[in-house]
Design a protein around this nucleic acid. Structure first.
Lengths: 234, 234
DNA sequence: GAGTGGTCTAGACCACATC
DNA sequence: ATGTGGTCTAGACCACTCA
């Protein structure tokens, strides 16, 4: 764990658990530097990350101010797994594995991954059931050259835990497009859409630290059940 | 203009105009430092911003790689005004001012801005018409203590240009919540929603560099017409 | 004027990819 | 072994806020 991440996590924890409250001011950068016995620049790096993630606002000439953070539900500025999200909203969520298989020759996937027709992909279909309603339907595709093995047990829990802790993949970032479209018949079958004919679609492309695309996925949500928050810097 | 912003803009320009193409590699940080005659750290700051904004990916042990950027339409990771968006999608967009007035005593606004009932707000209602269809409906509220004057002429062009260039407001960041709900009768009247009864809602709270909330707004879009892209870092 | 955050530098050392 | 990006430091100077 690098020093700036340690400081970042420490302060973030104190903000989320209420030790530092919204509208309060942090200690100055030089005081924090003394307190942690790190250089001012290391503290600054931690504070910059906290600002990017919407926890604090730096104000020139004054100390940094703690922002309210309660509004954040599904934060898209952080890359979160569904499991992490569950811990935030402490409600009854259950993951159901619908299907897990190897597929080959899908032209759409060949285009996305820029591979030839021999390429193999794991396809994972899962739903997330929240208080008895299937509100999320997830279709995920993994490049088998990078994820050589997946089984039912892994797919029923957290795939990302497995990728990072067991396969030691270094995940860099994810590009996400949010859009809206009519649900297909298959989607209507697996989701509890009530009267809604539209679904929220989050398409994601996830890359490793070396720039390789290894995952493509589509997550579908019932429109009335999800809010996404971001912080946009000027 | 700071040095790192100069480098950021220079490289960003070369990526967007095609001088640097996707999957190509940039020069190394030390080469760039020599080329611009700036320190390595200044170059690194520029590259980090480019990475955050999804233009490049830094790869340890190798040079930084240019990412494809064509997919970005409405990027929520940058704070963009509608006018800037228009320049990107060079299609026929027209802004219509529906209403501009001072309002007072709205309890919802009093709660959001945390002010008492004497507080005055400018309310601006506008639509954006794209190839003849009113696809965006914008309701914006400004704290009159910070924006003391607005008129028809300003509201019909770019309000943000006015705020930054004339009033010299320093805009820091904006919190945005994306959600979906049924359209109201008023919204159906002003927008060309076709058969859609749902609208995409982007609620925004915009803050100055000193931490003051000065703008609250709701932007509504027809669901089939907009895509929002973000880059989420792990 | 004193203190704060913002920019910039030069140099050290580490981890990683490549040959 | 070489070059790359990542972390960390110490110090300088600037712009801003506030009393």
């Amino acid at each position: 764990m690098s020093k700036y991440k340690e400081v970042y996590n420490d302060i973030k924890e104190k903000i989320t658990n209420g030790t530092f409250k919204a509208r309060e001011f942090l200690k100055s950068e030089s005081e924090l530097a003394r307190k942690y016995s790190y250089s001012k620049d290391t503290i600054r790096k931690a504070l910059s990350m906290l600002e990017l993630d919407g926890y604090i606002q730096k104000i020139k000439g004054k100390n940094s101010m703690v922002l309210e953070n309660g509004r954040f539900k599904n934060s898209l500025s952080n890359l979160r797994t569904s499991k992490e999200l569950n811990q935030i909203e402490n409600i009854n969520i259950k993951t159901n594995l619908i299907d897990l298989r190897l597929i080959q020759g899908d032209s759409e996937l060949m285009r996305i991954f820029e591979v030839s027709e021999e390429a193999l992909f794991y396809r994972v279909l899962r739903t997330r059931v929240l208080d008895g309603e299937a509100l999320e339907y997830e279709k995920t595709y993994f490049d088998k050259r990078i994820v050589p093995f997946l089984d039912k047990k892994i797919a029923e829990s957290s795939i990302y835990d497995y990728l990072e802790k067991k396969l030691h993949l270094k995940i860099s970032h994810s590009r996400r497009d949010i859009k809206f479209r009519y649900a297909t018949e298959d989607e209507k079958k697996h989701m509890d859409l009530k009267d809604f004919n539209l679904v929220v679609v989050i398409e994601s492309h996830t890359y490793l630290s070396n720039g390789t695309l290894f995952q493509y996925g589509v997550n579908l949500y019932r429109p009335d059940k999800f809010v996404f928050s971001t912080v946009a810097k000027r």
